[in-house]
């Protein structure tokens, strides 16, 4: 989550000046961006004017009416590639995050609730994963598994498990001291029930916030992986891949090859980060605000 710190640093002073309204504005902006990309992904065949995998005209055309974002070296329409690319990135990132959640949340819950040696063992494993820079670890795992969509999603999911684990564990530690948990125990509730029926629902706000923040971060990781050629196989349209392919031609002045994919990666990551930050503001998580 290191890179998101930067987004935070930029916005924190604004929150200081304008108060909660910035949080709300962020939430709405973020939701609009994400919604737009989701619509793009769902209705890609209707929106994209050309087939993204075959040549649609002359190569290296700058943005025109026919080719809104120009064409690449194979003459493929960049706009269509971006529209279809949103499908890949959303699919990979959302499924990766869901995997991280379904592993990290139960582990964090059990670890925090049970405590003792089990907690120490789990925490040690998670901390050692967390100690790696997320991109480096993702690269290592993706390289080991080989480039395809499933493996990319897996690699990303492993990287973000500790994020969920740590958040959930911490919250569980404080929630389990709450009197209503004590009261449930005094009524003869089983440990399993206390964890999943009393503590877990109370973690919902945290989970939602961590979800959008980690999706934002995972988008950057996915783009990074495919930039390095560790994600999808060509000619599948993918933002990170297009970034890499377009990058050598930047010297020729073909700016549109990298500008639009880069912009989209940034916008989508920002969209999710805004949602996360805005919601965090709403739920007053983090305490310092």
């Amino acid at each position: 989550m290191v890179r998101l710190e930067i987004v935070k640093k930029i916005y924190e002073p604004l929150i200081g000046i304008f108060g909660v309204r910035v949080g709300r504005g962020m939430l709405i902006t973020g939701m609009l961006i994400v919604l737009a990309v989701v619509i793009m992904a769902v209705f890609a065949p209707l929106i994209a004017p050309y087939n993204p995998t075959i040549s649609a005209g002359k190569p290296f055309q700058p943005p025109t009416k026919e080719h809104l974002f120009g064409t690449n070296r194979l003459g493929q329409d960049m706009f269509s590639r971006i529209v279809y690319g949103s499908r890949i990135i959303l699919l990979v990132v959302i499924s990766a995050t869901l995997i991280s959640m379904s592993v990290g949340i139960p582990l964090g819950l059990i670890s925090g609730y049970v405590g003792g040696k089990l907690d120490r063992a789990f925490s040690m494993v998670m901390d050692s994963i967390y100690a790696f820079p997320s991109l480096v670890l993702a690269i290592a795992i993706a390289a080991m598994l080989g480039p395809n969509i499933t493996n990319t999603a897996l690699a990303i999911s492993i990287v973000y498990i500790p994020t969920y684990f740590r958040m959930i564990r911490g919250q569980t530690l404080s929630l389990k001291e709450q009197l209503f948990v004590e009261a449930a125990r005094a009524l003869g509730a089983r440990d399993r029930e206390i964890m999943f029926r009393y503590i877990l629902p109370n973690l919902a706000p945290t989970i939602v916030v961590v979800f959008s923040l980690s999706v934002a971060d995972a988008i950057l990781t996915e783009a990074g992986l495919s930039f390095l050629g560790l994600s999808v196989v060509p000619p599948t349209p993918d933002w990170g891949y297009d970034l890499r392919v377009g990058q050598p031609f930047l010297l020729n002045g073909y700016w549109w090859l990298v500008f639009f994919p880069g912009l989209m990666v940034m916008l989508l990551a920002m969209g999710f980060a805004f949602i996360g930050e805005g919601l965090g503001e709403r739920f007053a998580l983090g305490g310092e605000r």
């Binding site: 709450q178 009197l179 209503f180 004590e182 009261a183 005094a186 009393y198």
Partner: peptide
């Protein structure tokens, strides 16, 4: 328990 404010599940 002592504190009725927190001894019920808020959700």
């Amino acid at each position: 328990f002592q504190d009725p404010m927190t001894s019920l599940d808020p959700l």
